[in-house]
Amino acid sequence: MYDPTVARLTYRALLGRRRALILFVLPALLLVIAAAVRLLTGADDSTAEAVLGGFSLAVMVPIIGVVAGTGAIAPEIDDGSVVYLLAKPIKRPTIILTKLFVAIGVTMAFSAIPTLLAGFILNGNGGQLAVAYTVAALVASIAYAALFLLLGTITRHAVVFGLVYALIWEGLFASLISGARTLSVQQWALAVAEKVTGGEAVASDVALPTAVILLVAATVLATWYAGQKLRSLTVAGEE
Rank of each mutant, 00 (worst) to 15 (best):
M1N: 03
L9D: 08
L15M: 11
R19G: 05
L21T: 13
L21P: 02
P27F: 01
A28R: 11
L39F: 09
L39S: 10
A43G: 03
D45T: 03
L57K: 03
A58S: 13
A58E: 06
I63L: 11
V67F: 11
G69C: 11
G80M: 08
V83Y: 08
P89G: 06
K91T: 14
I95L: 11
L97A: 12
K99E: 10
K99F: 10
V102F: 09
A103C: 13
P114K: 00
L116H: 10
A118L: 02
A118I: 06
N125M: 07
V131D: 03
V135P: 07
A137T: 01
A137L: 01
A140M: 10
Y144H: 12
L149P: 02
A166D: 14
L167T: 13
E170S: 11
A174C: 15
R181Y: 07
W188G: 06
V192I: 15
A193E: 10
K195T: 15
G199F: 13
V202I: 15
S204F: 11
V206A: 09
T210H: 13
V212Q: 10
L215S: 02
A217Y: 03
V220K: 04
T223R: 05
K229Y: 05
S232W: 14
L233D: 05
V235G: 11
E238K: 14
